[in-house]
C-alpha cells in the first residue's frame, strides 16, 4: 500500500469531481453557513423564552456536574439546542460523501473511464483508499468547519444568558469527535456497495440517501424520550457505528477488486 499513489488519485478526483461539480461545490460553501451558523442561531434565538429563570455565575464547560443547579426550563433549552445543532451538524458528514462518492464510484462506471486506471500499476486497495479520501477530506473539512462555526454561534447567544458554554455537551462532543469520521466512513463504504449495483450517478446518490437513517434514529429516539442523551447512549451508539462501519468496509473490500471492477469498463 503506497499512500502516495492514493493521494494522486484523490488529488485528481478532487479536481475532477469536487471542483468541477456545481452541486458539490455549493454544498461545501452553503452547508457550514446554513447548518453551522444560520439555523442553530435562529433556533437558539427563538427558543430563548423556554428558559423561565435565567441563571448566571456558573462557568462549567461543557455542562455536566452542575446540571441540577439549572432550572428545568434552562435544562430543556440546553438539551434542545444541543440536539438540534447536533442533528444539523451530523447530517453533513453523512450527506456530503454521498454526492462525491456517487460521482467517484458510480460515475467512473457511467463514464467508462476505469480501463486505463486498471492498466496502470496500482492496487485495488490504493485505488479504493484514494477514492475514499476524495470523499473524506472535503466531508470532514466541511463538517468540522460547520461544527466550529455552530459552537461559536450558539455560545455567543447562550453565554450571555447562562454564563457558561452550553454547547456542545459531552455526549454531543463525543459524537462530533468520534462519530463524525465514522459517519463519513460509513457513507463512503455504503456508496461503494450501492455503486457496485447501479450504473448511474443519479441513481447512486438517490439510493445513497439511506445513509441518513442512523442520525434520524438518534434524533427521534431523543425527541420522543425513548432514551436519554447520555454518555451511555452515545457510547452504545458509537460502538454500533464502529461495528456497522467494520461490516460495510469488509463488504466494500470484497466488491471493490479488479475482478469485479472490470465489469465496469
Amino acid at each position: 500500500m503506497r499512500f502516495r499513489v492514493s493521494m494522486i488519485v484523490a488529488r485528481k478526483e478532487f479536481k475532477e469531481i469536487v471542483l468541477r461539480s456545481r452541486l458539490i461545490l455549493s454544498m461545501i460553501y452553503v452547508l457550514p453557513v446554513v447548518f453551522g451558523v444560520v439555523m442553530p442561531c435562529v433556533l437558539a434565538w427563538i427558543s430563548l423564552p423556554m428558559i423561565w429563570a435565567p441563571i448566571t455565575g456558573y462557568s462549567i464547560p461543557p455542562l455536566t456536574d452542575n446540571w441540577w443547579l439549572i432550572p428545568p426550563g434552562g435544562q430543556f433549552y440546553i438539551f434542545f439546542i444541543n440536539l438540534y445543532a447536533g442533528l444539523l451538524n451530523l447530517v453533513q458528514p453523512l450527506m456530503i460523501p454521498v454526492y462525491i462518492a456517487a460521482d467517484s464510484f458510480a460515475g467512473e462506471k457511467e463514464r467508462k473511464t476505469l480501463e486505463p486506471v486498471l492498466a496502470a500499476p496500482i492496487t485495488d486497495f490504493e485505488l479504493l483508499f484514494g477514492k475514499a479520501l476524495t470523499s473524506l477530506i472535503p466531508a470532514l473539512t466541511v463538517s468540522f468547519l460547520s461544527i466550529s462555526l455552530s459552537i461559536i454561534a450558539v455560545n455567543i447567544i447562550g453565554f450571555q444568558v447562562f454564563g457558561f458554554i452550553i454547547y456542545p455537551v459531552v455526549p454531543i462532543l463525543l459524537l462530533y469527535i468520534i462519530g463524525v469520521p465514522l459517519m463519513s466512513l460509513l457513507t463512503v463504504f455504503a456508496m461503494v456497495l450501492i455503486s457496485s449495483k447501479v450504473n448511474r450517478v443519479r441513481e447512486a446518490s438517490q439510493v445513497g440517501g439511506v445513509v441518513i437513517t442512523p442520525v434520524l434514529i438518534l434524533f427521534f429516539t431523543q425527541i420522543f424520550g425513548v432514551v436519554e442523551l447520555s454518555m451511555v447512549t452515545v457510547t452504545i451508539y458509537i460502538l454500533v457505528l464502529i461495528l456497522t462501519v467494520a461490516c460495510l468496509m469488509f463488504a466494500s473490500l470484497k466488491v471493490f477488486n479488479r475482478r469485479r471492477l472490470i465489469e465496469m469498463i
Binding site: E16, I17, R20, K112, L114, E115, P116, I265
Partner: peptide, 9 residues
C-alpha cells in the same frame, strides 16, 4: 483502449 476513456472534466 478501445473507448479512449479520458476524463472529460
Amino acid at each position: 483502449p478501445e473507448n479512449r476513456a479520458l476524463y472529460d472534466r
